[in-house]
Design a protein around this nucleic acid. Structure first.
Lengths: 150, 150
DNA sequence: TCGTTTTTGTTGAGCGTTCAACTACTTGGG
DNA sequence: CCCAAGTAGTTGAACGCTCAACAAAAACGA
């Protein structure tokens, strides 16, 4: 009783797969080349830079970046080794850890941001009409909505 | 002179990022759990299964799956170790290699397909209206078009 | 024809992610 | 109050991907 994909659906699925993979690969490669870090690490720095006092609980950081706790642990270990992030004990929960963005990390982020934003604009927004950008937002929200249900 | 993202664009970009990551992660995890292989490997098997005589040049396979030659080499090595794929010398080009899907590989694919297709339907098509599916196809094609330019 | 350039595919090292197992702490019910 | 259950975060091994370097064969050009 499999609900197979008809040729149109097949086409759509493969087009989406190819496009999102090509986009992510391109941005990842650009960021690695220009800033020496993968996109996932860039995102961690961004979230920290937006947090009050540039610090966040590990679990909040994991949630907002959509990554597992394990992945975040490894990532923060690397970012700490690079001098871009520091860890601190959480004052209200002795299990907790805070990750905080160092000045050096902020500077690195500030240096990487213009190039990356330019890449996002060139590869994502420029090829789409304003209507399509709007459609993409609604589509993405619908998918996320559905995926984050029980 | 950076063309920064306005709040709406920022929102769209993050929504797309979250959605495509969550979708891919979910499908990848399902496939790993149910078929013991990552989505990239499943795709290789699919492409081979659709090829005449279930065999393709390594470079064609790399192109259609959107992966680097190196990545494909490593992947086929693993698939060969699993008994799902075999390599053969290309008769017309002595540099070339053909990858061919074994019967065992075909059987594994046939067993994995229904569950995976069901996942794609549930997580991608079911949450979207027919109009949105159409929009997604056009958006994806526009992005791929642009990315595969120069 | 001979040498250069391109194309094809592989290899190994290094990196990032996943998964399962684990410690340490907090929470909640009897 | 105490113990069971849940939560926060880390760890190490296995795996897949990237990158640069490489060998072999084909295509090209003078």
């Amino acid at each position: 009783m499999t609900r197979w994909l008809d040729p149109d659906e097949q086409h759509t699925w493969r087009a989406f797969l190819a496009a999102s993979r090509a986009l992510m690969d391109t941005l990842d490669r650009e960021l690695q080349r220009d800033a020496g870090m993968p996109h996932a690490y860039y995102e961690i720095l961004v979230r920290l830079s937006e947090a009050p006092e540039r610090r966040l609980r590990m679990s909040e950081l994991a949630d907002t970046t959509g990554s597992s706790r394990s992945r975040l642990s490894h990532a923060v270990a690397r970012l700490e080794a690079a001098g871009w992030v520091r860890r601190e004990d959480c004052p209200t929960d002795r299990r907790g850890q805070l990750a905080l963005l160092t000045d050096e990390g902020f500077a690195t982020l500030a240096a990487a941001a213009p190039g990356h934003v330019e890449g996002v604009r060139r590869h994502l927004f420029d090829p789409l009409s304003p209507a399509q950008v709007d459609q993409l937002r609604r589509i993405s929200e619908a998918l996320t909505d559905h995926l984050s249900r029980p």
